[in-house]
Simulated assay, not measured.
Amino acid sequence: MKSAKVKIGIILGTLLVGWGVYFQPTPIDSHREEEPAVHKTDVIVNPENLHGSYTVLRIYDGDTLTVNMNGQDESIRFCGIDAPEMDQPGGEESRDYLRALIGSNPVYLGSIKRDRWGRIVSEVFVKTDTGFLLTNTYMIRQGYALNWERYSRNCQHASLYQVAEGEQRQTEITQGIPPWEWRRGAR
């Protein structure tokens, strides 16, 4: 009799464990579209005119961050891209994507210029195993920023912005009002 109860206990235990594994709730993240791999044109093996390694202090939105440069906080505006404003649809998603992309990694800056507000305008790179990821074009390709042609032609890797735009993932950001029009009041 005791062995029959043990066998029934084992069978019931196995069924309950199997039931729990089979009906495990699916994590929300598992329904997300798989993220495309980094495109070969987004990684540059030996970028020219690369300026130092800088600690990111703050990421304001999808195209602006603050770094510590020689003991001073400097605002960096990504060359040639425009991400949604924080009050614009997709603004928070763009910022959060850039935060996840950079993480706690230092950034490297390409050619440096200053805009009329005193911000540094530059291409922004993150070191990878195979070279340096040009985050400007990667943000375009992933659909979290737009190629701002008016200014991207002045960037060192201007031709890569057009390539990224041609392969851009379609998102709320790419289908909505461009940020440069949003700022002018086309809300």
Rank of each mutant, 00 (worst) to 15 (best):
H39G: 10
D87W: 11
G185K: 00
G143T: 10
T41N: 00
H31L: 06
T174E: 02
E181Q: 13
V121M: 00
V67R: 09
P27K: 04
D73S: 11
M86E: 03
A158K: 14
Y138I: 06
N105L: 03
L50M: 08
V6W: 14
G9E: 12
G80E: 08
I177G: 07
F78S: 00
W148A: 10
I28M: 07
D29L: 14
D115A: 15
F132D: 00
E85Y: 02
Y151V: 03
A4K: 14
L98Q: 05
H31E: 01
G91Q: 02
N46T: 14
N70T: 05
F132R: 00
G52C: 07
I120K: 06
V21F: 12
A145C: 13
A145I: 07
G52F: 02
G103T: 10
M69T: 06
V38C: 04
N147K: 00
T137Q: 05
V126F: 05
R95K: 15
G166A: 09
L65C: 01
G9W: 12
S111V: 07
R153P: 04
C155P: 08
R187W: 03
I59V: 11
Q156Y: 13
R95P: 04
A4S: 12
S122I: 10
E85A: 05
Q175A: 10
A100W: 02
G18E: 08
D61E: 02
F23M: 09
G143I: 07
G62F: 01
F132T: 03
I44A: 03
D96Q: 12
R141H: 06
V124W: 07
M1P: 15
